[in-house]
Computed example of a mutant assay.
Amino acid sequence: MIELIQRIGERLQLSAYVNEAAITHGIVTPLLQELGWDTADPRQVVPEFANARGRVDFALIGLGQKPAIFVEVKQVGRAIDGDRQLFEYAFHQGVPLCVLTDGREWSFYLPGGQGSYDDRRVYRLQLDDRSPEECGRILSRYLLRASVLDQSAFENARRDHQAIAGKREALAILPRAWAELVAEGHELLIETLVDKAEALSGYAPSGADALAYLYTLTGTGARETRRVSSTATTSIAEPQPAPTTAVPGADRAVTYTIFGEERQAPHASAALIDVLRSITRRDISRLPDLSAAVRTQKRAHIARSPQEIAPGRPDLARAAEIAPGWLVGLNIANRTKMMIIREACKVYEISVPSDLNITLPNA
Rank of each mutant, 00 (worst) to 15 (best):
V99E: 00
T101K: 07
G103I: 10
R104I: 03
R104L: 11
E105Q: 08
W106R: 06
S107Y: 00
S107I: 02
F108P: 00
F108V: 06
F108G: 00
Y109H: 05
Y109T: 00
L110F: 03
L110D: 02
P111Q: 03
G113I: 00
Q114Y: 07
Q114N: 09
G115D: 00
G115Q: 01
Y117T: 00
D119C: 03
D119T: 02
R120G: 02
R121T: 00
R121M: 04
R121W: 00
V122S: 01
V122Y: 03
Y123R: 09
Y123I: 08
Y123N: 02
R124V: 06
R124W: 01
L125I: 02
L127E: 04
L127D: 04
R130L: 12
S131Y: 02
S131N: 06
E133F: 06
E133S: 14
C135M: 07
C135N: 15
G136S: 14
R137C: 07
R137L: 14
R137H: 13
I138H: 05
I138N: 03
L139Q: 01
S140M: 06
S140W: 04
S140E: 13
S140I: 09
Y142R: 07
L143H: 09
L143M: 14
L144Q: 13
L144C: 09
R145I: 09
V148Q: 01
L149N: 05
D150N: 15
Q151T: 15
F154A: 06
E155N: 13
E155R: 15
N156S: 12
A157G: 03
Q162S: 11
I164R: 13
A170E: 08
L174S: 01
P175E: 04
P175C: 08
R176H: 10
A179M: 09
L181A: 13
V182I: 14
A183V: 04
A183W: 08
E184H: 14
H186W: 12
H186F: 08
H186D: 15
L188R: 15
I190Q: 14
T192M: 08
T192S: 12
V194T: 13
D195C: 05
D195H: 12
D195L: 12
K196Q: 13
K196G: 02
A197P: 01
A197E: 10
